[in-house]
Simulated scan of single mutants.
Amino acid sequence: MVCLLVSKHTIVIPKFISLLLDGEQSRDFTFIDNAIQANIRAAESDVTGEAFNVGCGGRVTVNELVDALNDLLDTDIDPIYDDPRPGDVRHSHADISKARELLSYEPEVGFSEGLEQTIPYYR
């Protein structure tokens, strides 16, 4: 005998799982100076007709971003999770190998240093 439990509340399990996983989306955040450097290198190079990814070459989750900001701002703010935007990718990581090879690009400002340099602007 097979017994299936079907309820109008069956959506609750997927919803809870999704909410508990929120904040683990990741992005390759980069500081504006890195983008400027890459553009200058591209303008001064002999390379034409190419597209490049520019980033730091790593991923940072939204939860890690919140932790880093809490540390730098000496706060203890918990994030409020919301549904992801339609079509939003879960993980994003810039492959900067082509920019490294053709433009000699290396990110000069890392994630943490970029946050440290950004905060005074907002203060």
Rank of each mutant, 00 (worst) to 15 (best):
F29S: 08
T10Y: 05
H93G: 05
T10H: 06
D82M: 14
V2C: 02
Y122I: 13
D74L: 14
L115G: 09
S18T: 02
I11C: 09
F16N: 12
D76A: 09
D88H: 09
F16I: 15
V89S: 11
D28F: 03
I119R: 01
C3K: 08
M1F: 04
E50W: 00
D82G: 12
H9C: 09
Q37G: 05
M1H: 04
R90Q: 11
D78H: 07
V12E: 10
F111N: 01
E64W: 07
I32D: 05
E116Q: 13
T61D: 07
E113H: 03
L65P: 07
V66H: 06
L115D: 10
S7T: 01
I80G: 11
E24N: 15
D33G: 04
I80K: 12
D67P: 05
K8Y: 04
D33L: 10
L5M: 05
L4R: 02
D74N: 15
L115N: 08
L19I: 13
D83V: 12
A51F: 11
H93V: 11
S7E: 07
G55F: 03
E24D: 11
E101M: 04
V47C: 05
T30F: 06
L72T: 09
I96P: 03
N39Q: 14
S97Q: 06
F31D: 14
I13Q: 09
T10C: 10
E108P: 05
D28S: 09
H91D: 12
Y81K: 13
V12F: 06
G58P: 00
S26N: 08
I40S: 03
I119G: 06
G23P: 14
N53L: 13
L5G: 03
E24Y: 14
P107V: 00
R90W: 09
G23L: 10
I40Q: 01
I119M: 02
D76F: 00
P86D: 15
R100L: 06
N34S: 10
I77G: 06
E101W: 00
G87Y: 07
V109W: 00
P86M: 14
R85L: 14
Y122K: 07
F31Q: 03
R41G: 11
G23F: 13
I119P: 06
E64L: 09
F16G: 09
P107I: 00
P14T: 13
I17K: 12
P86W: 08
D46K: 01
Q25M: 10
A38R: 01
I119K: 01
I36R: 04
L19C: 11
D67A: 11
P107Y: 00
Y122F: 12
S97F: 03
R90P: 03
Y81I: 00
V6P: 03
N70L: 11
E50H: 03
G23A: 14
R85C: 05
G58N: 04
S18N: 14
I80S: 14
